[in-house]
Nucleic acid binder design. Sequence first.
DNA 1: AACTCGGGGCA
DNA 2: TGCCCAGAGTT
Length: 218
Amino acid sequence: MLNKKQIRYCLDTMKKMFPEAKGELNHSNPFELVIAVLLSAQCTDALVNRVTEDLFKKYKTPEDYLSVSLEELQQDIRSIGLYRTKAKNIRKLCQVLLDDYNGEVPRTKAELMKLAGVGRKTANVVASIAFNEPAIAVDTHVERVSKRLGICRWKDSVTEVEETLMIKVPREEWSETHHRMIFFGRYHCKARNPNCPECPLLDLCREGKKRMKRAEEN
DNA sequence: AACTCGGGGCA
DNA sequence: TGCCCAGAGTT
């Protein structure tokens, strides 16, 4: 298991590799952030951005999403996977925002997770990025990278990965940590063919060393 | 823990 | 063509 100093080195290195790693879902508007992250489930961020560019011009408020038919909203997000379910969830979510939250987006993880279509990851992203609440969003990239490097254990659940990161990463870096690890995971430490031979973190990477050794034997 | 939803991107 | 993708909900 990596210690705090080693983890800091990892995060600094990731920043050097992807200095532009800002996170494309970094909307200043909490409501738009909820919608964007909800839509992003199981599809690429580039696709979501393409759709939300037009979507957010047409729909500004929860009322706007409820003012059209379900079919019309589905058409507007048709190019995104799971669009039927997501359109239904957006309508449910907007209705709850109006009924229970005066049209505003709630700030805490617990409240966010009660919204339709908002699970652990979306709730964490919105709470941490939009409201700077204490949370680290662990998606598949963050989980994979954490486990390969040895920041956490292989068998850890998503909750355990989350807890470990919150303990070992300074509070003020939680939000940025999310984006750095996602870029690192998406473009370098990929699920299928991680670029271990050219990885600057190979020396301290548990999984990387294992893979290099295995490749050498073949 | 395992399954389903699902169109687009990429090899 | 076949496989995967910045997940959530249900069983």
